[in-house]
């Protein structure tokens, strides 16, 4: 089977990869590009561990076919930090102990960044609904929600 050539932007850099027509973008990012930050928790769009942003839209990359990424601008957890500066969300997750096993963390960070980009000063309820597409089985969400609140404050102060 001939493979599909995809040209896109990933975390600000031009990127290209070959993929199968039926391959998910999640698998392509992980297996063809080598970015394993996005995780497969379900493969059916129910857990959010594979969250990415494509052209400004938060998506489950397990529900996107890899060829659909052609010409698109993709952001993953690997692109959140700037040089040696962590994104305030990353910093607040660390300081607020908002992760336990850490496997859902990349998806939460990407989803939370998408939320704050859209709504820089969300209420607790807006954070909870904004992150309702991401499953965490360890934390009970308390410290995740608090970390997002703290990050919003940090961003709004700067």
């Amino acid at each position: 089977m001939s493979r599909v050539h995809v040209t896109c932007t990933i975390n600000g850099d031009p990127a290209e990869f070959l993929c199968d027509g039926g391959q998910t973008l999640l698998d392509a990012l992980r297996d063809e590009v080598g970015l394993t930050g996005a995780k497969e928790g379900c493969g059916t769009g129910d857990c959010g561990a594979c969250s990415i942003v494509m052209d400004g839209r938060l998506l489950c990359s397990c529900l996107v076919l890899a060829p659909e990424a052609d010409g698109r601008n993709i952001s993953t957890v690997e692109g959140m930090a700037t040089g040696d500066d962590l994104h305030p969300l990353q910093q607040c997750f660390l300081e607020g102990a908002a992760l336990q096993c850490g496997v859902c963390t990349p998806g939460f960070l990407v989803a939370a960044k998408a939320l704050l980009d859209r709504n820089p000063d969300p209420t607790e309820t807006e954070i909870r609904y904004g992150l309702a597409g991401n499953l965490c089985r360890c934390t009970g969400y308390d410290k995740i929600v608090r970390a997002v609140q703290a990050a919003a404050e940090t961003i709004n102060e700067s």
Binding site: T36, E78, M80, F93, L94, A97, T105
Partner: peptide
């Protein structure tokens, strides 16, 4: 006390290697 966990940085940057991340 409540220090930042030592394995935290890898886990918030996507660098931590879970089993399915290994090839």
């Amino acid at each position: 006390t409540r220090p930042v966990r030592h394995d935290g940085l890898e886990k918030v940057t996507g660098r931590a290697r879970f089993a399915a991340d290994l090839n």
